[in-house]
Amino acid sequence: DAPDEFRDPLMDTLMTDPVRLPSGTIMDRSIILRHLLNSPTDPFNRQTLTESMLEPVPELKEQIQAWMR
Rank of each mutant, 00 (worst) to 15 (best):
L49Y: 02
E51G: 08
V19T: 04
S30A: 14
T41C: 12
L10P: 02
L49F: 03
M15C: 05
D1G: 13
R7S: 04
S30G: 10
T48M: 14
N38W: 12
S39E: 12
T41D: 07
E51V: 13
D12L: 13
F6C: 06
M15D: 00
S39Q: 09
L36S: 00
Q47D: 13
L14R: 03
W67P: 05
T16E: 12
T25C: 12
I26K: 01
P40Q: 14
T16P: 04
S39F: 10
L21C: 04
K61Q: 11
P18Q: 03
L33Q: 09
D8Y: 03
H35W: 15
E55V: 14
S39T: 11
P3I: 04
P9S: 07
W67D: 08
E5A: 13
N45Y: 06
S52E: 15
I26E: 01
D28N: 05
T50Q: 09
N45D: 10
T41L: 10
M15S: 01
T25Y: 15
D8N: 02
Q47A: 12
T50Y: 12
G24H: 04
S39I: 07
E5S: 11
L37C: 10
R69F: 11
R34K: 14
H35N: 04
I32V: 09
E55T: 13
D28W: 05
P56M: 08
D17Y: 05
F6V: 02
S52K: 11
M68C: 13
S30N: 11
L33C: 10
M68D: 09
A66C: 12
G24F: 04
W67N: 08
S52N: 12
V57C: 13
L60R: 01
M15L: 04
M68Q: 11
E51Q: 10
M11D: 10
Q47N: 11
R69P: 11
Q65L: 15
D8F: 03
R20Q: 07
T25V: 15
I32Q: 01
V57Y: 08
V57F: 08
T41V: 09
E59A: 12
I64E: 03
M11W: 11
D12V: 06
T50E: 11
A2V: 15
L14I: 14
F6R: 02
I32Y: 00
P40D: 10
M27N: 00
L14H: 04
G24I: 02
T50D: 13
I31D: 03
L21V: 03
P56L: 08
T25D: 05
A2D: 05
R34N: 12
P22D: 01
E51C: 08
R46D: 14
P40Y: 09
P58L: 10
R34D: 09
M68S: 08
M15V: 01
R69S: 14
D1M: 14
E5W: 14
M68I: 15
S23T: 07
T48R: 13
I31C: 08
I32A: 05
R29K: 12
D42K: 00
T13M: 08
S52A: 14
D17S: 04
S39K: 07
S39R: 06
A2E: 07
R20N: 01
M11R: 08
R46W: 13
T48G: 11
P56G: 10
V19S: 01
L60Q: 00
E5L: 12
L49N: 01
E51A: 13
G24M: 05
P40N: 13
Q65H: 14
N38K: 14
T13P: 01
D17N: 08
D42L: 03
R20I: 06
D42A: 00
T16L: 14
N38P: 01
Q65T: 10
F6E: 01
L60T: 01
E59Q: 10
L36C: 05
L36G: 00
G24R: 04
Q63S: 10
L54D: 00
L21R: 00
R20T: 04
Q63H: 08
T16R: 12
A2T: 12
N38S: 14
V57I: 09
R69L: 13
P56D: 14
L37T: 11
L37Y: 10
F6T: 02
L36W: 00
Q63M: 14
I32P: 00
P22K: 03
G24K: 05
T13Y: 07
P43C: 05
E62A: 15
S52V: 10
N45G: 09
D28K: 00
T16K: 12
S23F: 04
R7K: 13
F44C: 06
Q63D: 08
V19P: 02
L60E: 01
E51S: 11
Q65M: 15
E62T: 11
T48Q: 12
D12P: 03
M53Y: 04
I32G: 00
H35R: 05
D1R: 14
I26Y: 04
P3F: 05
T41N: 08
T16D: 09
V19K: 01
S39P: 01
P58D: 09
P43L: 03
P18T: 01
P22N: 02
H35V: 07
I31P: 00
D1K: 15
N38A: 12
P3Y: 05
L54Y: 02
L14A: 04
T25K: 14
P9I: 05
R46T: 10
S52H: 12
P22E: 01
Q47L: 10
L33S: 08
P22A: 04
L54N: 01
P43M: 03
D1E: 14
T50I: 10
E62S: 11
D1S: 13
L21W: 03
P58H: 11
P22V: 04
E55G: 04
L37K: 14
P3A: 05
D4K: 15
I64S: 00
E62R: 13
D42W: 04
M53G: 05
D12I: 06
M53K: 05
N45R: 06
M15Y: 02
Q47H: 10
S52W: 12
R7H: 07
S39C: 10
P58M: 08
R46E: 14
I31L: 06
Q47S: 14
P43T: 01
E55K: 11
T48F: 15
T16G: 07
L10C: 13
L37W: 10
D12A: 12
Q65A: 12
S23L: 03
Q47Y: 08
I26L: 04
I31W: 07
E62D: 12
P9V: 04
T25Q: 11
E59R: 09
F44W: 11
V57S: 05
M11Q: 09
S23I: 02
D17T: 03
D42Q: 00
S30H: 13
K61D: 04
K61M: 09
L14W: 05
A2P: 15
R46Y: 14
N38D: 12
S39H: 10
M27P: 00
D12T: 08
M68T: 08
E62H: 10
E55N: 08
P18G: 03
M68P: 08
I26W: 02
D4I: 15
T16N: 10
T50G: 06
M68K: 08
E59T: 11
I26N: 01
P58G: 07
P56T: 08
P3G: 04
Q47R: 10
R34L: 13
D17E: 08
W67M: 06
A2G: 07
S52C: 09
R29T: 03
P9C: 07
D17C: 08
P9L: 06
A2Y: 14
D4N: 14
N38G: 11
I31Q: 06
G24N: 05
D12G: 15
P18M: 02
W67K: 07
S30T: 13
H35E: 07
